[in-house]
Design a protein around this nucleic acid. Sequence first.
DNA 1: CAGAATCCGTTATGATACTG
DNA 2: CAGTATCATAACGGATTCTG
Lengths: 104, 104
Amino acid sequence: MTPSSAAAGVENVLRMLEGRWKLVILFHLFGGKLLRFSDLERAIPAISQKMLIQQLRQMETDGIVRRIVHHQVPPKVEYGLTDWGQSMCPALDTLLKWAAAKPD
Amino acid sequence: MTPSSAAAGVENVLRMLEGRWKLVILFHLFGGKLLRFSDLERAIPAISQKMLIQQLRQMETDGIVRRIVHHQVPPKVEYGLTDWGQSMCPALDTLLKWAAAKPD
DNA sequence: CAGAATCCGTTATGATACTG
DNA sequence: CAGTATCATAACGGATTCTG
């Protein structure tokens, strides 16, 4: 594994997690919770609708988040993590621990 | 630890690693290598001077990279990782493994 | 050699109003 | 409720030129 190929691998991972709000959203979904669009809006007041839907869609495309549509009126759409999305927890934990170990 | 505080923690970590070139630079420095500014330029031909110095400075501020100035003419400046910077390897590895485990 | 300074195009994010 | 559409701005990245 060359420096650049390894970097490319991590960069692609990071790209999936980049975006001002993705991690905030993810942390609200961890634990297998299912939240409606409006639930997420309430949980994250600072986010705009545009950003919320955009980041959700990107994570859906990346296979991290799943979207569950209940065909009813009024509409009901729930968001949750995929199995793979759930499985990122340990990785984020490792990163957090590294960050927490910062000297100074 | 609330969702938002945990997210804030990881977000700060990610922010330190974000930037088009940081990981590429880091991978060149892993293993305790010391590289001069011009070495890094040669190692990463696609990067501009502006970006190289900017990302190095940010990582220096974050305590990941250290800058070693040799007072001589012509100037000689070397860059390497701090101990803490070195210690991020396992965390990146965990992330890579999660990414590699992606289904499809 | 190791940068600093400037200009400029692209992308990311945000505010607001509207819709099936 | 769960979005779309549009417009404006801010952050980011790159090319070029200059300097101790």
